[in-house]
Computed example of a mutant assay.
Amino acid sequence: MHPNAALILVDVQPDFMPGGALACHEGDAIVPGIDRLLRRGLFRQSVATQDWHPRGHVSFASVHEGYRPFQQIELYGHPQTLWPDHCVQGTPGAALHPGIDWSPVDLILRKGNRPDVDSYSAFHENHGPDDQRPSTGLAGWLRARGVSEIYAVGLAREVCVLWTVQDALMAGFRAHLVWDLTRPVTPQSDETTRATLERLGVAIVESAALC
């Protein structure tokens, strides 16, 4: 058991699976393991994030004339990757993955639901200086429930999962990334992701070691 820890399940949604609008490499491979982990009840709290974009969201390449998916623009002083339209509110691709029993989850946090703001992290919106980005309220919610550390799983490893553990550290939580229960958009990013996690002091763990 991890009595002071929360499990953060990041964006485990069909649009990030093979065949989805923004498929992660082998994204569907993590679904059975996440389902088993959630059912074990090892954590004080469990939180699922859900990308929940309105149509015409600012992060969609389709709303920027002359741009294609995966190109970058500057937005609010930060580099912004432009994505294929994905996780549009109310569509099947935006649902929490049906292969997981979500009933043990204590909180479902929808993010990216403002048309003009992207939200990778479970803790903060993307815009503004790093130490002033608007909060989602998750840090306060966790502290009020006695949580002092987080374990992150989900998609995508080098984007929303990485941002979530980075922001968890900034908020004063100990942070762990469960490597085998995450997948990247592209595996070519893994070396850089590991180096970033090690530099920050995020623990990289495997689900088999959790007990």
Rank of each mutant, 00 (worst) to 15 (best):
98 P>D: 15
99 G>C: 03
99 G>K: 07
100 I>S: 06
100 I>H: 06
100 I>L: 11
100 I>F: 07
101 D>I: 06
102 W>E: 04
103 S>M: 04
103 S>D: 14
104 P>N: 07
105 V>L: 09
105 V>K: 10
106 D>E: 06
107 L>C: 11
108 I>P: 03
110 R>P: 00
110 R>T: 14
110 R>H: 10
111 K>A: 02
112 G>Q: 03
113 N>R: 12
114 R>C: 05
114 R>W: 09
115 P>K: 11
115 P>F: 05
115 P>D: 11
116 D>Q: 14
116 D>W: 03
116 D>L: 07
117 V>R: 15
119 S>M: 14
119 S>G: 11
119 S>A: 15
123 F>E: 13
123 F>K: 13
124 H>T: 14
125 E>P: 00
125 E>W: 11
127 H>E: 13
128 G>F: 05
129 P>A: 12
129 P>S: 13
129 P>W: 03
130 D>N: 08
134 P>D: 11
135 S>W: 00
136 T>G: 06
138 L>H: 01
138 L>I: 09
142 L>T: 02
142 L>K: 05
142 L>E: 07
144 A>L: 13
144 A>G: 15
146 G>F: 06
147 V>W: 01
149 E>P: 06
149 E>F: 01
150 I>G: 04
151 Y>I: 09
151 Y>Q: 00
153 V>I: 07
154 G>K: 10
155 L>A: 12
155 L>Y: 00
155 L>I: 13
157 R>E: 09
157 R>D: 02
157 R>M: 15
159 V>E: 09
160 C>A: 01
161 V>C: 15
161 V>D: 08
161 V>T: 11
162 L>G: 06
163 W>F: 15
165 V>L: 02
165 V>P: 02
165 V>W: 01
166 Q>C: 13
167 D>A: 09
167 D>P: 05
167 D>Y: 00
168 A>H: 04
168 A>P: 09
171 A>M: 09
172 G>R: 13
174 R>V: 08
175 A>R: 12
175 A>P: 06
175 A>H: 05
176 H>S: 08
176 H>A: 00
178 V>E: 04
180 D>S: 11
180 D>V: 12
180 D>L: 03
181 L>G: 09
181 L>D: 11
183 R>S: 07
183 R>H: 10
184 P>E: 05
184 P>G: 02
185 V>H: 06
186 T>Y: 07
187 P>L: 05
187 P>R: 12
187 P>F: 04
